[in-house]
Design a protein around this nucleic acid. Structure first.
Lengths: 151, 151
DNA sequence: TATTGTTATACTCTATAACTATA
DNA sequence: TATAGTTATAGAGTATAACAATA
């Protein structure tokens, strides 16, 4: 990608453009920050979800991330291959998998989160602390929408 | 996609997650709003760029959008097939294409922009006018970065 | 019958490399 | 040689449909 020239004054105020490019930039900064830990931003998100309240199934975890359960399968395959998570059948319902962080997974989560925090600081650098805080909470507000109005 | 359950408290404050899902929601709202005009958000962005200062080449326009010139070819192919833009060789340098909005393109731009503005208002609805304005300007600030530090 | 994990498959978006015509 | 447009191709990322095991 080029980015040699900025957008015109019209385009550069449209939210679609701004969100797409902001997301792209954050993803790039995250990717660079996470390289030493051998994971990308999506994989870190999975580790974060697993470290919170332990999900009772892969499907559960996928819902928390807003991704499909089939996507979660592939994601967990790679994390398991890296030794960061483990799968075992649920005791009460053997259709489900309980997914846990390994010790290596816990350690990677801790360090990768620090690196990602630093990437967020770089991303927010042009803003100043108050505007940065407000950006985060405004994004939370619009993302915590009512999806119900879709149709 | 499901979105049945929200993210955990940890994940839901990470900028990578917030930006990805905010962008996804804005894109969905835009897609729904633009359906009557037969274009999507990316195509509207192209129309906006072409309507500003007329780019001297496809490559020029692509740079303003932050996309590859090969991507621009396909985008313009569909817009031309819809009768919204026209390509003609540049007078001085016949390697280049001058791309212009047709009359239908101008009209579609006008109406689609209104629809997209309405979608933005829906997106920003949970915010209040001051926070909405600040979100837009903060996004502009972080997107208008110095890409130079990449490596 | 319904649900979980899985596999196979396909679709969208995007980029890289190579070709052409011009310069 | 270098550049603009184009084409072919490949790689992410994601979703849908179908299948096996279990409920």
């Amino acid at each position: 990608m080029s980015r040699t020239e900025g957008p015109g004054p019209e385009l550069g105020r449209r939210l679609g453009y701004l969100l797409k490019h902001a997301q792209r930039r954050m993803a790039e900064l995250n990717a660079k920050a996470l390289t030493p830990y051998g994971i990308d931003g999506r994989e870190l998100a999975v580790l974060v979800v697993l470290a919170g309240r332990e999900p009772a199934s892969q499907q559960h975890a996928a819902q928390r991330l807003g991704i499909d359960r089939t996507t979660m399968v592939a994601l967990l395959d790679t994390l398991e291959a890296k030794g960061l998570v483990s799968r075992r059948p649920h005791a009460d319902d053997r259709r489900r998998n309980v997914v846990e962080l390994t010790d290596a997974g816990q350690e990677t989560l801790r360090r990768a989160t620090e690196a990602s925090d630093a990437a967020e600081r770089r991303f927010l650098a042009p803003l100043g602390p108050e505007a940065a805080q407000q950006l985060r909470s405004s994004l939370q507000a619009v993302v915590t929408h009512e999806d119900g109005e879709t149709a």
